[in-house]
């Protein structure tokens, strides 16, 4: 058995480079890999031209809000950035390109990317500006949109529990985009709030199998307890 538990430096160094696409888990704060994000912001602030794929933009100066504020990202693919007025301002000033994707289509494009499917067909967004510019297909008398799969270079996840083989488990509503993202990237780094020995998570309860995971690091306790 190879032990995937690494120090932060070792897990991140060499893996993240300028211009890459990073998939970052989390819906609001739940499931957001704050330790990995803060490490990038502190030790890799020179990174430029990243494309971030995240459900939301967290909050001003919190989570990916810090990466955006440091000018590390060129592009954000997201579903909702309403809790981060700084990200909205950057978008409006033309400093950040934002692609909004309906949330279920966002999840499904990532799932498709991880499942080896180049694209899928859907009627979500037909008759709205979301359909603009997208290829369509006539099928069984209906016009459907072609939605392309999304893949990333590196996924950053925060599991509630991970074992040393990388098997992951999430509590409550923390799972959100994590499992799909964990399948859709060339490298997957997991910060775990609790690291356990193999077998401590019952096999039937593993949400993301360790075969998808490249490194596990210890998450730091969250220091931003506020409403």
């Amino acid at each position: 058995m190879s032990d995937l538990v690494k120090e932060l430096n070792e897990a991140v160094a060499e893996r993240i480079r300028d211009g890459q696409t990073l998939m970052i888990a989390g819906f609001g704060r739940g499931g957001t890999p704050f330790t990995l994000i803060e490490h990038l912001a502190e030790h890799h602030a020179h990174l430029r031209g990243l494309t971030l794929v995240k459900n939301d933009a967290n909050e001003s100066n919190l989570g990916i809000g810090v990466l955006l504020a440091r000018g590390m990202a060129r592009r954000l693919i997201s579903t909702h950035i309403g809790l981060n007025p700084d990200a909205i301002a950057m978008m409006n000033r033309g400093e950040l390109e934002v692609e909004f994707v309906p949330q279920g289509i966002f999840a499904e494009r990532i799932r498709a990317g991880g499942a080896g499917l180049p694209a899928f067909l859907t009627d979500i967004g037909m008759g709205t500006i979301v359909a603009k510019g997208k290829p369509t297909v006539e099928l069984d008398g209906r016009t459907l949109l072609v939605e392309r799969a999304l893949r990333g270079d590196v996924a950053l996840l925060c599991a509630d529990i991970a074992d040393r083989m990388g098997n992951c488990w999430w509590r409550g509503s923390n799972r959100n985009m994590s499992v799909a993202m964990g399948t859709a990237c060339d490298a997957v780094i997991v910060e775990a709030r609790e690291i356990v020995e193999p077998g401590a998570i019952e096999p039937e309860n593993v949400h993301l199998p360790g075969v998808f995971v490249d490194a596990v690091v210890q998450a730091q306790p969250r220091k931003h307890m506020q409403s």
Partner: peptide
């Protein structure tokens, strides 16, 4: 107001 659609379309 351009916050994004979240899951509203589905």
């Amino acid at each position: 107001l351009t916050p994004g659609m979240g899951g509203g379309m589905e």
